[in-house]
Structure formats: structure tokens, C-alpha cells
Computed example of a mutant assay.
Amino acid sequence: MISHRHFGLYGVTSSSVRVFRRVFAIPSSTNRMMRRQLSRGVSTCRAQKASEFPPSLQKIVGAFQMVPDPMARYKQLLFFASKLAPMPAEDHIPENKVEGCVSQVWVVPELRPDGKVYWRADSDSQLTKGLAALLVTGLSSCTPAEILSVQPTFIELLGLKQSLTPSRNNGFLNMFRLMQRKTLELVAASVRTESAAPAAPAAASSAAPSAVPAAVAEPQSAAANTAESSSSNGNGAAPSTSTSSTPVQDAMQRKLVETLRPLALNIWNDSAQHAGHAGAMAARHGKAGESGETHFRVEVVSEAFEGMTQVKRQRMIYQLLEEEFAMGLHALSLITRTPAEAQAAALQR
């Protein structure tokens, strides 16, 4: 079962919400509400009115509220089940499965060019298929912001609680939570794709530390820097003709992304602040010293850190960047967090 804690991981951090708001032009009022809702799981400041739902969901809530008889609502669910389009067999995979349901349920989203999300679902039970179809109909053709703004209390407005067993009600809530979680995953993937587009490398700043945006989590100009990566990794390849002024930072970012698949990654180049230090002077024999890249701060949030002590996390990253240290990287300050730890830190700010 997806707990409140795990559900909150996907949208609580300040950097995640800022990126989401920037990409999808979320109004500040909606942004604040989303942060409150996601950080508290199902707990909210006030009950959401039906008029605040997306139009497609408003229509479904209204239709169920017009049917006072629990048995009639039950039949309405079976009608929804009969209208659910078949799901391809290849979509019946663990990543799409709803945990905590008495029946097997799968949900799959698709973010289309119009900026809206469309859903597919399936179940091995007609009743559960009806519940899935209700959510598919109510949340399809909605923007990510609309889906994330819906509070779980809408389930009570449908009047189905009396018609369903507690386990079915919990399963319905789990379906809804997974759909919101997958919506955030779509947003994150969209941001990564956008950020991976070719771009001119930024010049290293001599006045202030440089930072890689947290949510992009992909190396810039990956195709253009292939030759650079091979030489900057200290493997003896011929010198690169790349014009990148930050080969060490590029290599660090690429390795951290490929190995840890981070939910958030920040890299700050503090080398300019340590240019006169003895360690930095000694590092100048390597490529890191030549490009002035000797001191970095790195903050990374990754599920790969689950169950690992801070010492083991940092040791893993130091081993991952052994070649960069051999090139002249002198100092690396690390902040390593699991998603749960990142959420707790964000709520304390």
C-alpha cells in the first residue's frame, strides 16, 4: 500500500513544486494549495467543493449524487466497467499495478502534446474495473495541475462508501493516489526531456558558484559532449575538441544521473572561492585544475540511498568519481538524502 508518507514524497520539496509551477504555469494560489495537500497526504485544510473539481469529474460526482439508492449506484459502477476500453497486455506490469487492492488493478497515464493527461486502466474484477473506469473518465483530459489539485475527499461525495466494503474503499483511494503519483512522474519526465535538449555550455563564473538546477537531472548537450566525456574520465583517450568549460562538472552530473537516477540533483561549483588554496594549486596538474574545477558541493536525492548509512552513501559517490579526483578534483562536499529525508527537510524550512 502507498502510505501518506510515500505519496507526499513526489511533490513536497520546494524545488519540485517550483519546477512544476514553471513548466505548467501554475498560479501561485494553486501552487500553495498543492503543496499543502501533497505534504499532508489525505489531510487538507478544508473540504473541497464539487465546483472546484475538473469539469469531467464534476459531471461524474453530480451523476452519482442524483442517484440516492445504493444499489442503483452499484449498477452505475458496473455500467462504467462495461464502457472501459481494453488495456493491452503489455501494460499489465508491476509498475502500473495498484498496491493494496483486493483485486488486481493497473493504471497507465499518457501526457499528450495538448498538455493534458489521458488514462487507461484495467482490473480482474468487474466492480473494481468500474471504480477504475470512474477515475479514468473523471481524470482524463485534465491538466496535471487539475489532477493534483483534487483532494481524496471527492470519493465521499460520490456516495459509494455505503455500497463498498472497507477494503474496496481503501483500494479506490489507492487507485487515486497512484494516479496522482504517476501524474507527478510524468511531469518530472517532461522536465528532464525538456532540459536534455541541446544547449550551449555555460561559462564558469569567477564571481559566484554555479549550480545545476535540481530537477533537470540530465547532462546538458549529452550528444555533443561524447568525446569530452571519454577524455575527462581519465581513461587515456585523445584530448577532446569540446568547447565545454566545465568538463568535470559535466562528467560528475552524467555519472550521478546514470547511477543514482536522482529525484533531485544540485551541483555547485565553488572552485573560484578556493583558487588560492594549497590543495587547489596542487590540483592544477590535472584536467580539473586546468579548467579551475577543484571544489564542489553536491546535493542529491535518490531512492538508491534507501537503507544506506550516510557513510556508505558518500563512499559510493566518492568511488563513482574516482577518475575525477585523479584528474585534480580536490574537495567534494556531499548532502545525500532519500526522498523521505528530503521531504522532512523541506517541511522544516
Score class of each variant (00 low, 15 high):
R254L: 11
L256T: 05
L256C: 09
V257F: 10
V257I: 10
V257T: 14
V257K: 07
T259I: 10
L260A: 06
R261C: 11
R261P: 02
R261D: 13
P262Q: 03
L263A: 14
A264R: 08
A264D: 08
A264T: 01
L265I: 05
L265N: 03
N266R: 15
N266P: 02
N266S: 14
I267H: 05
W268M: 02
W268P: 01
W268N: 02
N269L: 00
D270G: 04
S271T: 03
S271Q: 01
S271P: 02
S271H: 01
S271L: 00
A272W: 01
Q273C: 01
H274R: 05
G276H: 14
G276W: 13
H277I: 10
A278R: 13
G279M: 07
G279R: 03
G279E: 06
A280C: 14
A280Y: 03
M281I: 15
M281V: 15
M281C: 10
A282W: 07
A283W: 07
A283T: 08
R284D: 11
R284A: 12
R284W: 02
H285Q: 15
G286W: 00
G286Q: 02
K287Q: 15
K287P: 01
A288N: 08
A288K: 02
A288D: 06
A288C: 13
A288L: 04
G289V: 07
G289A: 07
G289N: 08
G289Q: 06
G289F: 02
G289D: 06
E290K: 15
S291L: 11
S291Y: 14
E293L: 00
E293Q: 09
T294G: 05
T294P: 10
T294M: 08
T294E: 04
T294H: 06
H295F: 03
H295C: 01
H295M: 00
F296W: 01
V298T: 09
V298I: 12
V298E: 08
V298K: 09
E299L: 12
E299V: 07
E299S: 15
V300A: 09
V300W: 04
V300E: 05
V300T: 12
V301T: 10
S302R: 02
S302P: 02
E303Y: 05
E303M: 08
E303F: 07
E303T: 12
F305I: 07
E306T: 15
G307L: 10
G307Q: 09
